[in-house]
Computed example of a mutant assay.
Amino acid sequence: MDFVDSGLYRDITDYAHGTPAWVRHTAEIGTEAGLLVFVALFVAGWWRARHSGTRAFAIAVLAPLATAVAYVCSEVLKSGVTQERPCRAVTDAAPSLAECPPHGDWSFPSNHATIAGASALALVLVRRALVWLTAPLALLMAFSRVFVGVHYPHDVAAGLLLGTVVAFAVVRLGTRPAVRLAEAMRASSASTARWFTGPGPETVAHAVPPYATHRRR
C-alpha cells in the first residue's frame, strides 16, 4: 500500500525553509522539549495524586504506563509497515531540517506523535483541565516532525490516533487492578510503599466545642 502524500510534505518542508532561523531551531528541539514537559506533568500528577483518592492515584500512575504501551505498539506497527522516511524517499523535496534517520528507522507511524497523543490523553484522564495544555502541545509536537522533514503528515496523524486509543484502553482496563494494588500499598507496613502511594485524602476532624452541647436555659 502506498502511503506517500509527498505533495503536502513538500509544501510543509518548503514553507519550513522560508521561516526565520529561530523558528527552525525551535522546531528541531521542540519535540524533545515537549517530551520533557510531559514527563514533568506525569511526575506532578503522581505527586498531587498522593493526597487524592485511590482511584485518582491509580489513574495518575497508569498514565505514564499507558504512554509506554502506546510506544511499544507504535514500534511493532512500524516494524510491520516498514515505510521509508520522506527525507529519503521524496524526490525534489527540500532538505530536512533535522538529520534524516538511518535506513531501517521506519517512518509510519511517528513514535513521537504516538507518545505525544498518549501522554496528552492520559494526562487529561488524570486531570481534565490539562486538556488546554496537553492537546495543543501534542499537536505542535506532531506537526514539528513534518516541519523538520522526518515524517509524512499521515505518519503523525496515525501516531496521534494510535497513542490516544491505546492510552485510553490501557487506563480503562487497568484502573480496577491498579486501584486494588494502590489500596494494598497504602495499607502496607512497608514505608517505601506508603511513601510512593501517599497518605490519600487528608481528613480534618472538626472538634465540637464543649459549650456547643449545652443548651441555654
Rank of each mutant, 00 (worst) to 15 (best):
A138N: 08
L139Q: 04
L139Y: 09
L140S: 11
L140A: 12
M141H: 00
A142H: 07
F143S: 10
F143R: 07
F143K: 08
F143G: 08
F143C: 08
S144R: 11
S144V: 05
S144E: 14
R145D: 01
V146D: 09
V146T: 12
V148C: 04
V148K: 00
V148P: 02
G149T: 13
V150K: 12
H151P: 11
Y152P: 05
Y152D: 11
H154I: 15
H154S: 02
H154C: 06
D155P: 07
D155N: 10
A157L: 13
A158I: 08
L161A: 15
L161I: 15
G163D: 01
G163P: 07
T164M: 09
T164C: 01
V165S: 09
V166Q: 04
V166Y: 00
A167T: 05
A167Y: 06
F168H: 01
A169W: 10
V170S: 02
V171I: 15
V171E: 00
R172C: 03
R172Q: 03
L173F: 03
L173V: 11
G174M: 02
G174Q: 02
G174V: 07
G174R: 01
G174P: 01
T175P: 02
R176Y: 03
P177I: 11
A178R: 01
V179W: 05
V179M: 12
R180W: 01
R180P: 02
L181Y: 00
A182E: 11
A182H: 07
A184N: 05
A184L: 12
M185C: 10
R186W: 07
S188N: 04
S188C: 09
A190I: 11
A190G: 01
S191I: 09
S191P: 04
W195S: 03
F196W: 09
F196H: 01
T197W: 12
T197Y: 08
G198W: 11
G198M: 15
P199H: 06
P199F: 02
P199R: 12
G200S: 06
P201E: 12
E202R: 06
E202G: 00
E202W: 06
T203R: 14
T203Q: 09
T203F: 08
V204P: 00
V204I: 15
A205N: 10
A205M: 06
H206Y: 13
A207Q: 07
V208G: 07
V208I: 15
P209K: 14
P209H: 14
P209G: 06
P209E: 15
Y211S: 15
Y211G: 03
A212V: 04
H214Q: 14
R215V: 09
R215P: 15
R215H: 10
